[in-house]
Design a binder for these strands. Structure first.
Lengths: 209, 209
DNA sequence: GTGATCTCGGAACGGTCATTCCAGGATAGC
DNA sequence: GCTATCCTGGAATGACCGTTCCGAGATCAC
């Protein structure tokens, strides 16, 4: 019997993700969201609650729409180290070129902002981190099965190193680090995980005489 | 002949560093700085300029007072890998316990905030990154001289990996990551740089049967 | 069509923001 | 002591903040 919503909350939340991702939580005013979505303040508040709730919803949406698919593909692809290479490759592509170049990762950005103090956000960050880590571990396990890894490699430790590295890549991309050097860095980090091909040497293109 | 300042700008800037470091640029109001320093708005503006200038000055001070000494020690200590271990060790200590636990690194935080768009800030970030990188490279060069590194190790690539990892450590510490797992991660990243002692195995305490 | 119920746009609220201005106080050369 | 010069505290400014409220409009069961 009542009136029904004149907009699709899911679509609107996607727009909101863009704004928060691009501008950050603290620097984004509700007015920006109103103009970006075309939905009035009242409706935003009625649908999502206050600003903190709204940001939490947006961050959750970001994770399930941007992070989770990438993690799932990483975990599911059965090519071992190649899957990891591709994961970092597309990560760097997204961060350094295209529509969202220089925006960084919304999750990584959340780590450094005041929103990180919020317990609800903390939970999102922790599950995100756990998912990333286990996806990397799964890919490493596949690599181990394929005999790509040196015997005795500690998969959990390697996954921790790579996930921590990913945060660094996300950060550096925001300052305009070029894709090439980021790729070199990732390649160098992956090098010791390659079973004895050209041991301990990174393919950075930089040769030291 | 004129009146002279009633406060020491250097001391005041140190106080301002604390506030910006703890609360972030966007969420810190001038009023917070007034109450923290005991200096009135007028004097702050007269001495440092507007808020952006003030933040830039604070970030510069942070780098020269917190980052630079650590980098200098890292570069100067002649123990090679041990120096790098110590660098990360004290880094993790500072980030995870003590007065500034959970604050993260002010520079790392700047990467993720809107202040990163400012060209002046960008310059600070870039020189900071360069200094960190060359300090790591110097320590690695020492390690190579000491025969601690596998022959043929690409020092620049290794330094890039470690510096990127440091950003990740700083970020994760803000979310409450415990010092132990961060240390394990760093140890695992350093493991392949150790010349053939227990190759490719990290000391995470996690043993896989 | 009628009416109950929800939504919507926009105004309104008190608070805080960064910044400026000004009157009065402190300083130092003379 | 006088005066020119600067510094300082606090008020004032105008814009924006997040949030709430309300009248008007839209919807659906009947």
């Amino acid at each position: 019997m009542p009136d029904i919503k004149h907009f699709n909350p899911d679509v609107v939340l996607d727009d909101i993700v863009q704004v928060f991702w691009h501008q950050g939580m603290a620097t984004t005013g509700i007015q920006s969201l109103v103009t970006a979505t075309g939905v009035s303040r009242s409706s935003l508040y009625a649908t999502f609650g206050n600003k903190d709730d709204l940001y939490a919803a947006a961050l959750g949406r970001y994770i399930e729409q941007h992070s989770a698919p990438a993690f799932a593909q990483l975990a599911a692809t059965s090519t071992g180290l190649t899957a990891i290479e591709e994961f970092f490759g597309t990560l760097i592509d997204v961060r350094c070129s295209g529509a969202v170049a220089g925006w960084g990762c919304m999750v990584t950005n959340a780590y450094a902002g005041p929103e990180c103090a919020d317990p609800g956000i903390r939970t999102l960050l922790e599950t995100h981190h756990g998912t990333l880590q286990s996806a990397l571990r799964a890919a490493l396990a596949t690599a181990a099965d394929l005999g790509q890894l040196p015997p005795g490699t500690d998969l959990d430790a390697a996954a921790a190193v790579l996930s921590t590295l990913a945060y660094g890549v996300n950060l550096r991309s925001r300052a305009g680090a070029d894709a090439g050097s980021l790729t070199d860095t990732v390649t160098a980090a992956l090098a010791p995980l390659r079973a004895e091909s050209t041991p301990h040497t990174a393919h950075t293109g930089v040769t030291r005489p």
